[in-house]
Design a protein around this nucleic acid. Structure first.
Length: 140
DNA sequence: TAGGCCATCTGGTCCT
DNA sequence: AGGACCAGATGGCCTA
């Protein structure tokens, strides 16, 4: 879609220099705004790529869409949250597991397997999620 | 070929 | 006034 041209250009008549300058100014602003918008969207996409790296891929070779990435992130956070709250109540294996995750995060290699069984109260929150949540398993 | 996903452009709105 | 953010429109690419 091209920007509106001054009427003098449309009609092929002699342009008022002020009209022309105004038109050029509008075009310059529009081009600058487009560039800013591109840059903004590139920043957003970079953030999505970073999110994809830390979110489980479920063995998929195809990269997750933006929507899937957000859904997966939501589910992943809830599963980790669940593990965290379980570990604060229960015994040391979970604590050790969390320590392990902490180490792997620091070394830039992400969790291999998270097993999360029998969700109960969070079940309704998972229903819109495309993957089965009854046995949360993360493979990266 | 239809449908999904994405990048880009654009105009509107809000904020500084 | 200029920039950031947003949503709608459009066109390209890819896959089933």
């Amino acid at each position: 879609m091209k920007p509106c041209t001054p009427s003098c250009v449309d009609l092929g008549s002699e342009c008022d220099p002020r009209d022309l300058e105004k038109f050029r100014s509008v075009v310059r602003k529009r081009v600058a705004a487009n560039a800013r918008e591109r840059k903004r969207m590139q920043g957003l996409n970079t953030a999505f790529d970073q999110l994809r790296k830390v979110v489980p891929q479920w063995g998929q070779d195809k990269k997750l869409s933006k929507y899937e990435t957000l859904q997966m992130a939501l589910s992943y956070i809830m599963a980790l949250n669940r593990i965290l709250s379980d570990s604060s109540r229960n015994s040391t294996p979970q604590r050790q597991w969390l320590d392990l995750q902490d180490d792997s995060q620091q070394s830039e290699s992400y969790p291999c397997i998270v097993r999360y069984s029998s969700p109960t109260e969070n079940e309704c929150m998972y229903t819109s999620f495309p993957y089965h949540c009854e046995d949360f398993q993360v493979l990266t």
